[in-house]
């Protein structure tokens, strides 16, 4: 048997799939070059090893963990509140016939309002405290949850209401069937909302200087302590990664039971 032709196979995977870890190599190489050739005294591009030292220094001073806890608290509370309010409002608006036409313009406008612009207003009205941060974060991350829930309710309501009438469900039972059927969409909304919530949490701390990761970043920047800024950037990145992992862990079993939505 002789080899006749060598051709590349044009079949590809479906374009989803997880990128292989070897794709991290360019990033690692970049950091390695940075480490090897970067100057110890550079204000702009301090060596990566200095970042680590800087983070250790913050940890020693006892401000790292309290800040992380403060950021996480605001973030988690906001996600919970936004999920509850978003789902309830979404179901309410989605179930009423005139809901869309009545609220669409308002929702559209509020949703497009950049959270960054709202932070100073909230600070001046509610004062500079973690309550205000919570309000801001809920306000900015509620939209994907609300809109997803509304869309799903709209989609299933016709079929579902027939089923409910047929089976004769009432009251609490009926509510639980509705909630069950929109759960995957709510979670999909949470998936979009979670990274957003983290960013807005840090943003609120950043702008108003209430304690948290964001305010650590601001003070590092104001002191021109660039290793600290880079170190905190990595910490924030790890926090975001952690949030992503947790969200997909929570989401996976529920989506498996209900089938993927959308």
């Amino acid at each position: 048997m002789r080899k006749v032709a060598r051709m590349t196979i044009s079949r590809r995977d479906d374009g989803k799939g997880v990128a292989p870890l070897r794709g991290l190599v360019p990033l690692v190489i970049l950091l390695a070059i940075w480490q090897l050739f970067g100057s110890t005294h550079s204000v702009f591009f301090p060596r990566p090893s200095l970042w680590w030292d800087a983070v250790v220094k913050i940890e020693r001073s006892g401000t790292l963990w309290p800040s992380l806890v403060a950021t996480s608290e605001t973030f988690i509370e906001a996600i919970i509140v936004a999920t509850l309010i978003g789902a309830v409002l979404g179901i309410a608006i989605g179930s009423v016939k005139w809901g869309d036409s009545a609220f669409n313009p308002v929702l559209d406008f509020l949703r497009n309002l950049p959270a960054a612009a709202v932070v100073p207003a909230a600070a001046i009205i509610l004062g500079t405290n973690s309550k205000m941060a919570l309000v801001i974060v809920v306000f900015s991350c509620i939209w994907p949850i609300l809109l997803n829930t509304r869309a799903e309710i709209r989609r299933v309501s016709v079929v579902l209401s027939n089923v409910i009438t047929n089976v004769g469900l009432r009251g609490f039972r009926k509510q639980s069937v509705i909630v069950g059927s929109v759960l995957p969409s709510v979670l999909l909304g949470v998936r979009v909302a979670a990274p957003l919530a983290l960013i807005v949490t840090i943003l609120a701390e950043f702008i108003t200087n209430i304690s948290g990761l964001g305010s650590l970043l601001v003070s590092a920047q104001q002191n021109f302590d660039s290793p600290e800024v880079y170190g905190l950037l990595v910490v924030a990145g790890l926090l975001a990664l952690f949030v992503n992992i947790v969200v997909s862990l929570v989401e996976a079993p529920i989506v498996r039971r209900h089938g993927p939505s959308v």
Binding site: M1, R2, V4, A5, I9
Partner: peptide, 19 residues
Amino acid sequence: AGLIPYSGSIKFRGSQLSG
């Protein structure tokens, strides 16, 4: 159709298929 590699021989109109 000449879309995948093969071994052996495919002749199209007398000439070996290579694409």
